[in-house]
Write a protein that binds this DNA or RNA. Structure first.
Lengths: 178, 178
DNA sequence: AACTAATGAGCCGTAACAAG
DNA sequence: CTTGTTACGGCTCATTAGTT
């Protein structure tokens, strides 16, 4: 709750104040008075010296709105539209052109930022999927190993069965021969 | 930042400004009476673009070099160093502070760009690896299928061998019994 | 001690300009 | 026009210092 509440409409009042009490705006230039205690309660309007020279450096919200509207429909600016806008807004055509230039630059930067965040999310999702695939590969390798092992075991068992069968056959025949 | 304040004063303060920063004072600021909005150094359409002596809007290469040197050693700026730099460069301390602020902003943007390109390369490599893993998964699935098939075939063959063995055994015994 | 206003410094957004 | 640079206004935060 400070001077930041004083916005566009208050500027004129501040201007009036600064005109009525010009000494308030230049306290540092005359610091020799009242050195005893009154250090506090210096003019609080120090931040916005909306003097005659500095008036309206920033465009008003209404002007910006209209400019944004026009920018939304078309980023480029032909001189015809520029002049029309300038007269509508009460601005210098040069100011309108500069505003559009800066706006385009800002838009470009914002675009880049968007690209960055998009790329970031895409990257993260791809990383997640890569991890998933890695675990899948590990699982599949394990399965492959297991299956091979089982295959070998099966072969061994089959071999054992065959061997036992052959042995029993041989035994039986030798016994029967005896 | 009292000088910042004085920058916003009315015409009677302009004398002070010009005394403090004669090289920076733009002459069109002094007669700032009829200008409604555009207060700032504005004179591009005036005939006296050629008074280079009073202009000096851009810092000289030498000044920028020294500033860059100092920025390289330390991005932050304590008031002591700021004042020293300002006196060394013949600049307003406010200008030095502003320059460092802008330089930090530029550095930040550059950093972001670097981050972007780094992220991009990382993203691309991860995408490549993901594709590799996908083909690997496909290959492993194929191998798994093949091995399972071979396993089944092997079992069938083993079964056939066993059956033939058993059959021959039965035949032999029956023959020997006969 | 708690409260509160003033102040200083930093960051952000942006106007204006300059150079290319 | 685009890109880069200088400067300013507004905001936040931490610190300081007068008031209660």
């Amino acid at each position: 709750m400070r001077t930041n509440l004083m916005n566009h409409q208050v500027e004129d009042q501040m201007l009036l104040i600064s005109q009525l009490y010009p000494s308030l705006c230049t306290p540092q230039l005359v610091p020799g008075e009242g050195e005893t205690k009154p250090r506090r309660r210096r003019k609080k309007n120090k931040g916005e010296i909306t003097d005659v020279g500095t008036r309206k450096r920033k465009l008003s919200a209404k002007q910006v709105d209209l400019l944004e509207l026009n920018f939304g429909s078309e980023h480029k600016l032909v001189s015809e539209r520029k002049d029309r806008l300038a007269s509508e807004l009460g601005l210098d055509p040069r100011q309108v052109a500069v505003w559009f230039q800066n706006r385009r630059a800002r838009w470009k930067n914002k675009k880049l930022e968007e690209e960055y965040s998009k790329l970031k999310t895409a990257h993260e999702s791809v990383v997640v999927e890569k991890c998933r695939l890695e675990t899948e590969v590990h699982l599949l390798l394990y399965l492959l190993l297991l299956l091979t092992f089982l295959n070998i075991c099966g072969k061994i068992c089959s071999l054992r069965v065959c061997v036992s069968l052959i042995l029993s056959f041989v035994l039986k025949t030798s016994l029967s021969l005896n």
